[in-house]
């Protein structure tokens, strides 16, 4: 059992962010969620904070996203950008926390790099928000082609990365 005195401050900060950010993103929704779901999300966030290498993190993020998409009326409001920022921050904190045990202090350069990356990753969110707000109802027909296009790009990238070299190339 690791003594709490040996915990590194950077890891503790990451884990606090992991416990807080998804819960905040979930609770700031203008619709009151059921208590059971609140407990589930908060508990899962805490579990993610304790064991950041477990796949419970993406489930928490997807749950928050799903709640905003399905239950919040008129969700396209400026506040959703803050929710996106909170989810991005949680994702980055989760990555950093999963790098090592709680006693492993995170390198300052590593943290700085991931903060920059997180901000860079966040850039598409305001862009997407501007597109959604700019097109109003007209954005619906664009979503299927967009989703298929992005999935195709992802599939292409994955396929290229995992392809085996042919015999002709190796011989």
């Amino acid at each position: 059992m690791t003594s709490w005195r040996s915990w590194s401050r950077s890891q503790v900060a990451c884990r606090i962010l992991l416990a807080v950010l998804p819960s905040v993103a979930f609770l700031v929704a203008p619709v009151q969620p059921p208590v059971l779901l609140v407990l589930l999300v908060v508990g899962a966030s805490c579990a993610w904070a304790v064991l950041p290498e477990l796949p419970v993190g993406p489930l928490v993020l997807l749950t928050v996203m799903g709640w905003w998409a399905l239950k919040v009326p008129d969700p396209v409001r400026p506040g959703v950008l803050l929710v996106a920022l909170a989810l991005t921050g949680a994702h980055v904190a989760g990555l950093l926390a999963a790098y090592g045990p709680v006693r492993a202090a995170l390198d300052r350069r590593l943290v700085t790099m991931w903060v920059r990356r997180g901000l860079l990753a966040y850039v598409p969110a305001p862009v997407a928000y501007a597109v959604v707000v700019g097109h109003g109802e007209g954005v619906q027909p664009l979503m299927w082609p967009l989703a298929v296009g992005v999935l195709a790009v992802l599939g292409l990238v994955v396929g290229m990365q995992f392809r085996e070299p042919s015999d002709a190339e190796t011989s």
């Binding site: 996203m65 905003w68 998409a69 929710v83 862009v127 959604v132 989703a147």
Partner: peptide, 30 residues
Amino acid sequence: MAAAGLVGAALAGSPVLLVLAAPFLVPALL
């Protein structure tokens, strides 16, 4: 997660999912 968000946005017709899933695209691709 980015892919799931985009597919979910298309299936549910919810543009907010597009906004929320967009930040996960760049890290996933890179």
